[in-house]
Write a protein that binds this DNA or RNA. Structure first.
Length: 581
RNA sequence: GCGCCUUUAACUCAGCUGGAUAGAGUAACUGCCUUCUAAGCAGUAAGCCACAGGUUCGAAUCCUGUAAGGCGCGCCA
C-alpha cells in the first residue's frame, strides 16, 4: 500500500501541472503531515520552491493549485498566505483508506526489496552478558524485523567473539590453575576434556584480563595460547569447544529471555578458514606489507581530514586480530549470501576500526562495488551522572539482573491489580518487564548516548512500553464486550475518531523512516503516538455500548485496526503484548 | 594535538529534505473513577533552541567561528 503522504503528493503534483506549473524545471512536490493540526491534516509547502523557479509570488501559486485541488471529491484544499496549501481529507476518503489499510497484508507498509546481512549481538564467549550488550541485541533485532516487514530478505549473524585474545586469556588462566588437565598436555590424546560451567567462565575471564595488565609473563602466555589455538593445537581446540558449548548455551538462554534471535551463530572462528585466502589476496594485489613486524594495509585517502593509519591484518606474533576476522567474515558473507548490504550494529566507539576495515575490503575487492557496508553505531547507556552506567556497588550490571529487577516490579504491580490470573502472572510480568526495557531503549535514537534510569523503568508511567501494552489490553477488554460484532468503517462522528483514524493512516510510514534512517526509534515513537491517540479516543467515545449501530460498528473497527497496527509495531520492536494487565 | 559526536522547558528527550504559535514524557499545580481497565484522560505553568557572526523573503534546522561535555586516534574487541 502506498504511503498516504506519497499518495497525496502525487495528487498535489498533478494539480501543480494542471494549474500550469509543469515542465522539466519544476521542483518535486511534497506533502507532509500538518505542523498545525488545528488548521489542517496535511500540508504542502511546495509553492515556495515553485515561486523561485516560476518567478511568481508563492501565494499566487498556492492559490492556483488549491483551486484545482478543490475539484477533487476526496479532499478539500485551502491556500493560506504566504503560500501554504492546507489539505483535509473528506471523511468518506478516510473511511475507505482505513478499509484498505485493514485489508493490507503488509500493514500498509510500502514494500521494497534487497538482500541484507546483519551483524549484531557480538557477545564474547566466556564473558557474561551485561547491559553493555543490550543495545546491539535489541536494536539489531528490531532493525531486522523492520527490514523484513519492509520486504527485505535478511540474514542475521550473532558474530561471536570466540577467536581472539580473550580466549587465549581464559586458556592461559585455566592452564595455570589446572596444569594437570589432559588438554594442556603436549601429546593430548583427544580424550574428553574436563567439564566447565558458566559460573567458572564468568569468573575466569575478568580475573585473567586484570592479571594480564600487570603480569607481563602471563600476558605473553595468553598471546602464545591465542596463536596456538588459531594454529589448531588439538588440546586447546578441545578446551575451546568446551568453552563454546557452555558459553553458547548460556548466551542462548539470555537472548531467548530478551526475545532476540539470530539466523546464524557464526563466530570469528568460522571466518578462520578464509584467512589464508585473505592474506593471499592482499599479497597478490600488492596491498599488504610488513610494518614493525605486523602485516598491514594502507587505507588512508587523500581527502582525509586526519591521518588514517594502516590497518593491521596480522599481529607481529602472527596471530589474527579483529580486523583479520572482520575482513575474512566479509569474504564468507559475500560467498554465502551475496548481500546488497551488510549492516554492523556495533558500539559507536568502533567506528574508526570499521572505517579501516571497509576501506581495506574495498581496496581488496572483497565485495562488489555496489554492495554497501554500513556501520550502524549505537550510543552508550549512561547513568544519571552522565557516565557509563554502573550498579550501586560500582560494577557492571548483569543483563539477567536487570531483566529480573524490572520484571519483579511488573509482577508486584500485577499482584496488586489482580486483573490477571495467578497462573499467567509470571509470564505477563516477564513480557511487561521486557517491554519496559526494550521500549526504554528503542525510544532513543540508535546513535545517541542516553541516560539509563532504572527508577523510570520501574515506575512505568507515561511514555513507556507499559503504556502501550496497557492501551492494547484495554482494546482487548472493550472488544471482548462486543465479541460477536465485526465492525466496519461507516461514519466518523467525533474529532477523536478522526484523529485516531489519521494517526492509523500515517503509522505505516514510520517503518519507511526507520528503515531509511536505520533507527527503530521512528517506529517506537509512532507506536506511542498511536497508543496515545487511542487513549484519547477511548475516553471520549463509548464503544461497545454505543447505541447508534453505525457509530458502534465504526468504533469497533477502529479498535481492531489500532490493535492490529500497534501489534505490528510491537512485533517490529520485538515486544510481546499481554492479553490484560 | 588531530578527528568525530553532543548542547532545545527544572529533568530525560522529539523536532523529517529550512517555512505558519518549537513538541512529548517526568516532576509541580487543577479537575475527572456507582458507566467498556485511573499503569488512564483533560487542563495550567515552564523555553534569548549553548554563544557570536553569516546565507535566506524566512534558520532550532544550512555555513563559519567560540565555549562546555563525551568518544576515538597500530598489534584488545
Amino acid at each position: 500500500m502506498e504511503n498516504i503522504t506519497v499518495k497525496l503528493g502525487k495528487i498535489v503534483s498533478d494539480a501543480f501541472v494542471k494549474a500550469g506549473y509543469g515542465g522539466d524545471s519544476a521542483p518535486a512536490v511534497t506533502v507532509t503531515l500538518s505542523d498545525r493540526p488545528d488548521l489542517c491534516q496535511f500540508q504542502s509547502n511546495s509553492a515556495f520552491a515553485y515561486s523561485k523557479v516560476f518567478r511568481k509570488a508563492p501565494f499566487m501559486i498556492s492559490d492556483d493549485v488549491a483551486k484545482v485541488l478543490n475539484d477533487s471529491d476526496i479532499l478539500t484544499a485551502e491556500s493560506v498566505k504566504p503560500g501554504f496549501i492546507n489539505i483535509n481529507l473528506k471523511d468518506s476518503c478516510i473511511l475507505s483508506l482505513l478499509q484498505e489499510l485493514a485489508e493490507d497484508e503488509h500493514y500498509g507498509i510500502a514494500q521494497q526489496s534487497g538482500r541484507l546481512v546483519m551483524d549484531y549481538g557480538g557477545p564474547n564467549v566466556a564473558k557474561p552478558l551485561h547491559i553493555g550488550h543490550l543495545r546491539s541485541a535489541i536494536i539489531g533485532q528490531s532493525l531486522k524485523n523492520i527490514a523484513r516487514m519492509c520486504g527485505l530478505t535478511v540474514t542475521s549473524d550473532i558474530h561471536l567473539g570466540d577467536w581472539g585474545l580473550q580466549i587465549g586469556l581464559v586458556i592461559a588462566e585455566l592452564n595455570d590453575r589446572h596444569p594437570e588437565w589432559n588438554c594442556f598436555a603436549e601429546d593430548y590424546d583427544g580424550s574428553p576434556v574436563p567439564e566447565l560451567d558458566v559460573d567458572l567462565l564468568n569468573e575466569v575471564y575478568p580475573t585473567a584480563s586484570a592479571r594480564s595488565k600487570t603480569d607481563e609473563a602471563f600476558a605473553a602466555k595468553a598471546h602464545t595460547a591465542t596463536f596456538e589455538l588459531q594454529s589448531g593445537r588439538a588440546g586447546y581446540m578441545a578446551l575451546w569447544r568446551e568453552i563454546m558449548r557452555v558459553s553458547c548455551e548460556d548466551l542462548k538462554k539470555n537472548y531467548d529471555a530478551l526475545g532476540v534471535d539470530f539466523d546464524c551463530w557464526y563466530g570469528e572462528s568460522d571466518a578462520d578458514k578464509y584467512i589464508p585466502g585473505l592474506y593471499a589476496l592482499l599479497e597478490e594485489k600488492g596491498l599488504s606489507y610488513e610494518s614493525e613486524g605486523a602485516l598491514v594495509v594502507d587505507v588512508a585517502k587523500e581527502d582525509d581530514k586526519s591521518p588514517v593509519p594502516p590497518i593491521i591484518v596480522r599481529k607481529s606474533d602472527n596471530s589474527s586480530i579483529y580486523a583479520t576476522t572482520d575482513l575474512a567474515t566479509i569474504i564468507q558473507r559475500q560467498q554465502d549470501f551475496a548481500p546488497d548490504m551488510i549492516w554492523y550494529v556495533v558500539d559507536n566507539r568502533q567506528e574508526f576500526h570499521f572505517t579501516q576495515v571497509f576501506r581495506c575490503a574495498r581496496r581488496a575487492g572483497l565485495v562488489p562495488d555496489d554492495t554497501k557496508l554500513e556501520f550502524l553505531g549505537f550510543g552508550t547507556m549512561n547513568g544519571k551522572d552522565g557516565k557509563p552506567y554502573k550498579t550501586r556497588e560500582g560494577g557492571v550490571m548483569r543483563l539477567s539482573d536487570l531483566i529480573g529487577t524490572v520484571c519483579e516490579a511488573a509482577r508486584a504491580r500485577l499482584d496488586e491489580s489482580g486483573k490477571v490470573d495467578e497462573s499467567e502472572r509470571e509470564e505477563y510480568a516477564k513480557r511487561i518487564g521486557i517491554a519496559a526495557i526494550k521500549f526504554g531503549d528503542l525510544i532513543n535514537h540508535r546513535s545517541k548516548d542516553y541516560i539509563f534510569d532504572l527508577d523510570k523503568f520501574l515506575s512505568a508511567d507515561g511514555k513507556t512500553g507499559v503504556y502501550v501494552l496497557y492501551a492494547v489490553s484495554r482494546i482487548n477488554s472493550v472488544m471482548a464486550k462486543a465479541a460477536n460484532e465485526k465492525g466496519s468503517f461507516e461514519v466518523i462522528s467525533t474529532d477523536s475518531e478522526r484523529a485516531l483514524a489519521l494517526k492509523l493512516l500515517s503509522s505505516p510510514e514510520s517503518f519507511g523512516a526507520a528503515l531509511r534512517e536505520r533507527a527503530p526509534s521512528f517506529v517506537c515513537d509512532d507506536m506511542y503516538n498511536l497508543a496515545a491517540a487511542f487513549s484519547g479516543f477511548y475516553h471520549e467515545n463509548r464503544i461497545a455500548d454505543e447505541e447508534d449501530a453505525s457509530k458502534r460498528s465504526t468504533r469497533l473497527a477502529l479498535c481492531a485496526l489500532t490493535r492490529r497496527m500497534i501489534t505490528a509495531e510491537l512485533d517490529a520492536l520485538g515486544i510481546k503484548p499481554v492479553e490484560k494487565m
